[in-house]
Amino acid sequence: MQIRQFTESDWPQVWGIVRSVVRPADTFTYDPAMTEPEARATWLESPPGETVVAVNGTEVLGTAKVGTNKPGPGAHVATASFMVAATSRGQGVGTALLRYTLEWARIHKYAGMQFNAVAESNRNAVGLYVREGFTIIGTVPGAFAHPTEGRVGLHIMYAPL
């Protein structure tokens, strides 16, 4: 597996991943009816941030975006998001993408990385983030309407760099 910058030819596979992750409405706070143009505008980061893909040959296994969490006085904190193809889950793709974004943030001299809205029901992601040094610094109760678990909390997670 290689992690590299997104190229335009990756978009059809990235869109397939984004669509398959967002439509069930069980992990991301994105609108499950998100259109392809909306997905492009949301997922593709502008510099100084970047969007990357994890690939095996020409197959996109997963994707991540990383950049500044908020501009202005909070611009020293990074954020990132991750999506892994259903057929590639449980194979270390998410871990590799997370580690890549953490290293990116260190290289770019960010003080930490913050995730603003991690559904507490997304146990695999929460467990991965905790294993890689993040802590839950707060939870907004009932802020995520999970399709089968009902309203669950959204964690705010942080890792100092």
Rank of each mutant, 00 (worst) to 15 (best):
G94Y: 01
F115N: 14
T35W: 01
V93I: 10
E8I: 08
E120R: 11
A96D: 00
L61G: 03
T51V: 03
F115R: 10
E8N: 10
K109C: 06
P71G: 13
P32F: 05
V152C: 12
P37F: 10
S46Y: 04
F6E: 10
K70D: 07
V140C: 06
G90W: 00
L61M: 12
T135Q: 14
T58Q: 13
G94S: 04
V52W: 02
N124K: 09
R131K: 15
F115K: 10
G74C: 15
P71S: 14
G142R: 04
G16Q: 12
V14D: 09
R131A: 11
G90H: 01
M113W: 00
T63G: 08
A86G: 04
T27P: 03
I136H: 02
H155I: 06
G138Y: 06
R131D: 09
D10S: 13
R40N: 01
A159C: 11
N122V: 06
F134S: 11
Y100K: 04
F144V: 07
E38I: 06
S20N: 13
P48Q: 02
A64K: 05
G57I: 05
G67Q: 06
R4I: 02
T51W: 04
T79Y: 00
G67K: 08
G74I: 12
K109F: 04
G133W: 08
N56E: 15
T101V: 14
P47W: 02
V118L: 04
T58C: 04
F134G: 11
Y110M: 15
V140L: 13
A33V: 00
T95Y: 01
R106C: 09
I107N: 10
F82D: 03
M1F: 09
W15M: 02
T87L: 00
A117C: 12
M83F: 06
S46E: 13
S81T: 09
Y110K: 15
A125L: 12
Y100F: 13
A85T: 05
W15N: 03
N116V: 07
T139A: 14
R19P: 07
S88P: 10
V55D: 02
S121F: 05
E8F: 05
T29Y: 12
T63E: 15
R23C: 08
T79D: 01
A86N: 07
E149T: 02
V126E: 05
G153C: 06
A159R: 12
W11H: 11
V84T: 13
T87V: 05
G138S: 11
I156T: 05
K70M: 12
T35Q: 02
T42G: 00
G127P: 04
S121Q: 08
G133H: 09
A25H: 13
G67Y: 02
G138T: 08
A145F: 03
K109V: 05
I3G: 01
G74Q: 13
R106W: 07
P24K: 08
